[in-house]
Structures are given as structure tokens and as C-alpha cells.
């Protein structure tokens, strides 16, 4: 029988993962302590630029993705639940509007902007720009990291609301076209299910996820090793660690909500 030995390779992997977790946490704490600096003029310009690249440029794709996802989910649920509109709306609200929308947005931003952020910071670090900033008396944490984490938090929160609106309004419009739903009636029925507490929790969740994506991508980018493999390795690590952490945090949120 083959025995599995916990060797030095696995121990190294475990240690590096633990080190990375400590790194994400420390960069997050550092950014939180310096959060006021985001309104300082040069940092605010970086923040605005990130909002544009992360938030504004994602709008068309997210609108299309949400519209399709909303319609597909509603039509499938409607058929599976024996054309029971009330049940369809109930499941749709919990599964897609409350959970799915957040995950669609956060994974989309992780893949699109998180990878860009990690590779940009990795190339910054490889070109010696981080040291150059420090030599000029500019704190790289304040200038490079704080605006990126803040913009990621804002974008995930705002785009989740945008995604939810498109999911509901677009999905119901397509359902009324293909399945002859009464548009206003379905909207009114759906709005009666909404709970204020859930909305607040969703916003908290999005802010938390945004901070996680920002911290993971910034840390992996800044810690990129030199050499031709530094940037791709940092980018892929940022995506994989971000993906895993988001799922873990979502599970944690679900457990907390249960209690």
C-alpha cells in the first residue's frame, strides 16, 4: 500500500500559503490605517483611474452577463418548479439576486481587474518603481495599494447593485416576452419579498469581498519575484488565492447568516 508522506515540499507549500494569508491580512490592516490618505490628491487620481478601469469599463459586459444569467435562471426555475411564479421568485431572490449577483461580480472583477492589478504591481515592482517611489519620499502603500483596495471595494459594491437591478428588471422583461409574465405584477410580487437586512448584509459582503480581492492582488503583485516568470506567477497566484478566499468567506457568511 502506498503511504502518503507529508514531505518538505508540502510543508513548504503550507508555509508559503500561511505566509501569504498573513501578508493579505497585514496589507489590509495597513490599508485600513492609511485609508484617510485616499482623498489626498495624487492618491485620489489613482483611485479615480481605478474606478474607471474597474467599474465603468465593466458596465457593458456585466449588463449583458446579468441579463442572460437572469433570464436563464428564471426560465429554468420556472420550468423546474412547475410554472409556480411565487416559488420561482423566492428561489430566484435567494439564489441569484442575493448570492449569485455578488459572486458573478466579484469573480468577474477578480479575473478582469484583479489580474490586471496584480500584473501591473508586479511589473512596477520588477522595474524598481516601488523603490523609486520610496526614494522620492512617497509611501508605496499609500500611493499604490490604498487607492486600489478602496476602488475595488467601491466597484464590487456598486456593480453588485447594478448587476442585481439588471438581473431583476432585465430578467423579468425577457420572461414577460418569452413566457408571457405580467411585468409589473412580477416586479411587485418580487419587491414584497425583499428584506432590508438582507440588502445591508449583501453590501457588507461586497465590501468585504472587494477588500479581499484588492489585498490579495496587491500583495501578490508587490511580492512578485524578479525574472520573466515573476509577473505570470504573481498573476495566477492572485487569481487562485482570491478565488479560494472568496469561496471560503462566502461559506463563512452563509454559516453566520444561518445562526
Amino acid at each position: 500500500m502506498k503511504t502518503v508522506v507529508f514531505g518538505s515540499k508540502q510543508a513548504g507549500l503550507l508555509l508559503s500559503t500561511l505566509g501569504a494569508l498573513v501578508g493579505y491580512f497585514s496589507i489590509l490592516i495597513d490599508a485600513a490605517l492609511k485609508s484617510r490618505k485616499v482623498f489626498f490628491q495624487p492618491n485620489f487620481r489613482v483611485f479615480q483611474r481605478q474606478i474607471f478601469f474597474t467599474g465603468v469599463q465593466s458596465l457593458p459586459f456585466l449588463a449583458a452577463a446579468s441579463l442572460v444569467a437572469g433570464f436563464v435562471a428564471l426560465s429554468q426555475l420556472f420550468l423546474v418548479l412547475n410554472r409556480d411564479m411565487a416559488k420561482t421568485l423566492e428561489v430566484f431572490q435567494v439564489l441569484l439576486v442575493q448570492e449569485g449577483a455578488v459572486l458573478i461580480v466579484v469573480f468577474f472583477l477578480l479575473a478582469r481587474s484583479g489580474s490586471a492589478m496584480a500584473s501591473e504591481l508586479a511589473s512596477c515592482s520588477q522595474r524598481g518603481e516601488v523603490v523609486a517611489l520610496y526614494r522620492l519620499g512617497i509611501d508605496p502603500g499609500e500611493y499604490l495599494v490604498v487607492p486600489r483596495i478602496a476602488s475595488m471595494m467601491c466597484c464590487v459594491a456598486a456593480l453588485t447593485v447594478y448587476c442585481q437591478v439588471v438581473l431583476v428588471f432585465g430578467g423579468f422583461a425577457l420572461m414577460s416576452f418569452f413566457y408571457q409574465w405580467d411585468y409589473l405584477f412580477s416586479l411587485e410580487k418580487f419587491s414584497r419579498q425583499l428584506v432590508f437586512g438582507d440588502a445591508v448584509l449583501t453590501v457588507c459582503k461586497t465590501l468585504f469581498f472587494g477588500a479581499t480581492v484588492g489585498a490579495v492582488c496587491s500583495w501578490q503583485g508587490l511580492k512578485a519575484v524578479s525574472g520573466p516568470q515573476g509577473i505570470p506567477v504573481a498573476t495566477s497566484r492572485a487569481i487562485i488565492h482570491g478565488f479560494a478566499l472568496i469561496l471560503l468567506e462566502d461559506a463563512l457568511f452563509a454559516t453566520l447568516m444561518d445562526r
Binding site: 501591473e120 511589473s123 518603481e129 523609486a132 520610496y134 522620492l136 519620499g137 509611501d139
Partner: peptide
């Protein structure tokens, strides 16, 4: 140190410019 470095200016061959 960071505050003191604001009184100093390094001049390097590539200007120490940020690429983007």
C-alpha cells in the same frame, strides 16, 4: 525617513519615472 526623503531628490539615469 520617508519624511526626510521629501527633502531629498534622487536623480537617476531613467529619471525614476513611473511607466504608466
Amino acid at each position: 525617513i520617508c519624511k526626510n526623503l521629501r527633502r531629498v531628490m534622487p536623480l537617476v539615469a531613467d529619471g525614476g519615472l513611473l511607466a504608466n
